[in-house]
Amino acid sequence: MKRITTLCVLLLLQFMVVKKAFSDDGEVKDCFETLNRVTFAFNMGLDKVIFKPVSKGYRKLPSPIRTGTSNALNNLSNLITVPNNILQGDFRSAANNSARFLINSTLGIVGIFDPANSFGFEKGEKEDFGQTLGVMGVGEGCYLVLPVLGPSTVRDTVGSLISMNGGDVWYNVTVRDDEEYVKEFKESDYWVSRATGGVDFRAKNLEAFDSIEKNSVDLYATVRSLYLQDRKKKIDNSTGKTEAMDDGDWDTLENQ
């Protein structure tokens, strides 16, 4: 009951923030920009000292080890994706991802290999509670930069809180220690998987990040734009055709 009350309060706060979070041109407002920029600088420092060097080291591991790690982490992410597929009414993807999870966790040895793909269950897009709220019509709210975790919005932060309050099975069996179902996992397993996920992502994007960092005149604003575009794309599930920008935006240029 307490959990539900917390969620209701958070959602109420979210709606209050969302109402005031859009600028006149429909873009997400950066209501806490000063604080966000400080947090961003802190995160960049952390990246320089920890994440980037560790990711460079990770990149030196043999390719099969990196692929296996990436596969296992992807497999684990199905535990959040499947409930969100269902909440979004996408039962086909829910069935596909459930089958993938079952096959890869067993035949694929805790997800290190991806035999499900050979059986015709192709890898789909990841989903989370922030995306589900977006699909349900909840606006982004203000843009936020979280310490260590990086870019987010009020809505996506609420999504993460839902994960930590029962929405993520992996979090439940590790950190929340729901022993009635599984006893084998420890809290450290969750944090190790999150940290490894971060390093794996960073390692895959070393050159891209360097390039953005080197060629931006305002790196903070570039990262904010890319994050918000990415979230919008994921919520719209626009993976195929380019919908990143409509022609209207360019047509205003033609008319001048």
Partner: peptide, 9 residues
């Protein structure tokens, strides 16, 4: 678009 938002910022 990212550059537009960067410059506008």
């Amino acid at each position: 678009r990212a550059q537009k938002e960067e410059f506008n910022s």
